[in-house]
Nucleic acid binder design. Structure first.
Lengths: 287, 287
DNA sequence: ATGGCTATGACAGAATGCTAACATCGAATT
DNA sequence: AATTCGATGTTAGCATTCTGTCATAGCCAT
């Protein structure tokens, strides 16, 4: 009852929405998930199949099938047909967005989306593969990042640690970098995330890592001019969207691509580790 | 200046149209028929199948199949997938990027960009203003987030703390939530960031916060169905892009919009605090 | 006309999508 | 605690959709 706003908006009431509304209140947990997903993805529903919806919502295919029947459709084909005859097929989707992307926030969203697309130029560079290889083949990986991207760096470490062993977050202040004393691991790699001005300690850290014989990957923003002097593995994200505080969305997107690419170097291991992860969390009693 | 396509009509450039254009001039008779039909029926293409297209155009099914491969799609399924990312074509300069965005990483980038655009639907909801107001007017703001989005939550806290006072990160484990004992602040607000399954403690925390009389803002993903029962201030990001590890880029983008919107409630103060921040850091001797 | 070439289609097998029947799980009731 | 019932998943089978192989039709140059 609290999401009535859809009805007074420009959204035309579609047969599907009507049926969802009618079923509301008498739904099981899985069905509620499906109903919500259907409502939020109406525009591209016709492009889905039972299996893809199942994968995206985390229920089983048969539950999707049953839910459709519950709504009164004889199956996916019937739903598509319904969407088609009403003309609600899809085109709405993007045009709908465009209308919403007016105003100040809309501009910021567009800039962020464009910055994400611009990542394409970075992953297309030959250095990208080199960087992924460096991370993949390293015995130990260190991740660092400061201030307002420190959390992004830490999340990146967590995700990468799901994929491979020996990934550590280092911060110049507290750890004292003791782990960098020449030691067991011959083949080490530092990933520095530095998209903030004023973080003056980053350059010394890179120098130190180089001295210690590490490969160094730097993820930074367009204005950074010093990193290239130390390593060819420098990647840029657009961070200036001219908000009060700059967005780190594109940075997070790039970092997720790094994780993905490293995982793709050894898909079997990655899948196995991913599958084991939830279990591991439970066994640790943390969640 | 690079958007020359305005000259040949208002037709927006989609990945499909680009490919049709590229193939143009080197087409067989049947292919020309198909190309034309594809162009005119782009909006409902996803609802067709190889056989239905064959019937409507008068060619055979296999020719449709071959034509799709000629365009660079591996089949109908691939085309449908491409159509789903149509929104990305609406961005400035995307004609340029689209060329780079082939392959697996390209698909992931597009999905991320699409997910960012979809944020538009969230900020357009009336609840958005309510949430910003709740955060802006609260005496104290608590931020929480777990596992692979914990860092994002912490970064968000840092940034929001630049804009306003009394922003705290809370984690159920260590802090024990002692700060939530009924106390000095009457008007408090919790921002929960929960886009990960398996984070089972989040629901109790929201319940606790509600009991303590707080306003609650939840930022979650599409499959979350429980949050709406506690608060209308629930906002969704698309997190499923089907990488090995899901991207948190769109989440970070949304969070930066929250920060921005809160700052925009009191621009003078925000600007002043932002300007003072670097100085503050230096004085603390941290950077 | 003949030969070589490409475009197209027919058919069958592979792949994928959908659902019925049974199995399992968990919550509510006794 | 035991029982029941509904929700959900698993397996398996059929239906649909897609594509590889081979055959035929049309075109062009000789």
């Amino acid at each position: 009852m609290h999401i009535m706003n859809d009805s007074d908006g420009p959204t035309p009431v579609s047969p599907l929405l009507l049926r969802l509304k009618a079923a509301e209140g008498d739904l099981t947990k899985s069905e509620a998930v499906l109903a919500q997903w259907f409502g939020r993805n109406e525009s591209t529903l016709g492009l889905e199949t039972g299996a893809t919806i199942a994968a995206k919502t985390g229920v089983s295919e048969i539950t999707v099938s049953r839910f459709l029947r519950r709504l009164g459709y004889r199956g996916m084909a019937a739903l598509r047909e319904d969407l088609q005859t009403r003309g609600t097929a899809q085109l709405n989707g993007s045009e709908f967005y465009l209308r919403l992307l007016d105003g100040e926030l809309g501009t910021l969203i567009r800039r962020d989306a464009e910055a994400v697309l611009a990542i394409g130029t970075q992953v297309a560079r030959p250095e990208w593969e080199q960087a992924i290889e460096a991370i993949h083949s390293a015995d130990a990986v260190y991740v660092t990042g400061f201030q307002t991207v420190r959390g992004a760096a830490e999340d990146f470490r967590r995700r990468l640690a799901i994929i491979r062993d020996h990934v550590t977050f280092v911060a110049a202040h507290d750890s004292g970098l003791a782990e960098w004393l020449p030691g067991r691991h011959a083949n080490r790699c530092l990933i520095l995330i530095d998209t903030v001005p004023y973080a003056r300690e980053t350059e010394p850290i890179v120098r130190l890592a180089k001295t210690a014989g590490m490969k160094v990957v730097v993820i930074t923003e367009e204005l950074n001019t010093w990193a290239a002097a130390y390593t060819p593995l420098v990647f840029f994200v657009v961070s200036k969207v001219h908000a009060y505080v700059e967005s780190s969305g594109p940075l997070a997107s790039l970092l997720s691509l790094v994780t993905h690419s490293v995982a793709a170097r050894d898909p079997e291991t990655a899948k196995a580790r991913l599958a084991a992860w939830p279990t591991l969390l439970r066994e640790l009693g943390l969640f």
